[in-house]
Design a binder for these strands. Structure first.
Lengths: 153, 153
DNA sequence: ATGGCCCTTGAAGCGCGGTTCAAGTCAAGG
DNA sequence: CCTTGACTTGAACCGCGCTTCAAGGGCCAT
């Protein structure tokens, strides 16, 4: 159950799919705890693999390493601090989700785009598009697979 | 129809919600074209607002400015190059979408989390979680609103 | 003990996406 | 004329997330 630490940094790096330099960097900034050592060399137990995976997902969802650190540190006092941090982040992640969906829709329409010039293509925000983000959402929802702009609309 | 350029960089910045320094930076790297000038000062027409909005959305969906530039440049030759670029990016955006959804689910569970320690909480990858990303997806789908890990599972 | 391989450190460098700064220009208003 | 305010430039700087480098240490097999 309590497996003693046996992984070198190189093995951890291979198994987690990150660079050794990143692992040392994470340790420097306090994101990973300082592991035990054997003859000066770091020895990890398997637990660190889960942590690295978690870091990867959180990172890809737009969390900065500092925020991930807060998240992990805050976990020791699960509860209030954890909840406030996560509730704040939840809003950001939801916004990211919307924008990512919009971009996905845009790209899907772009796949089928047969327009000759940007001017006739609804994929590219025309003049007067104050909030192109909102326009992209609309365009993508309305356009279906046809991105042709109504000629003189 | 063809409104003449009348917006200063400051007005554009205010209306698009970006810094003037960013606009100049975008121009430096070729992301925005060099606008006309009046007495040395940049004068934009409203079209640039749409472009800036587009840049913002694309950026938030994980596109680098270089890629956005390719996307915009490629638009002049809509068609093949556009499609290959967008199809490549589509995969990345879909992956991002999945990870973001996973993170959102994680955060939602975290909101309700009543665990006292990370050890008993399914939100934190345990030892042996080789691929914590996959585990997060599973945890989030399975957990509902209860993140308590089965005691000796 | 020699070679090979993985590990160690601190410091420097890099790519990105900007911001900030100093010094100067321009047009309008009092 | 003089100030005010927004603009101009190039260069330097910044935070982030690393990577690379130089110089060296530990351990193992041959």
């Amino acid at each position: 159950m309590d497996r003693f630490p046996e992984l070198t940094i190189g093995e951890v790096a291979r198994r987690a799919g990150v660079a050794t330099s990143s692992i040392r960097y994470y340790e420097r900034i306090g994101l990973l705890p300082k592991p035990e050592r054997a003859g000066g060399q770091r020895r990890y137990d398997a637990e660190v693999l889960g942590k690295l995976g978690f870091i990867g997902v959180a990172q890809s969802a737009g969390f900065k390493l500092r925020e991930i650190k807060e998240l992990i540190d805050g976990a020791d006092g699960l509860g209030a601090p954890m909840r406030s941090l996560s509730s704040q982040k939840l809003g950001e992640v939801e916004a990211l989700l919307e924008r990512t969906k919009a971009m996905k829709g845009w790209l899907e329409v772009a796949q089928e785009c047969g327009c000759a010039t940007p001017a006739e293509c609804a994929l590219f925000p025309g003049p007067g598009a104050e909030q192109a983000g909102a326009e992209m959402l609309r365009v993508v929802q309305v356009a279906g697979k046809d991105c042709r702009r109504s000629p003189a609309g």
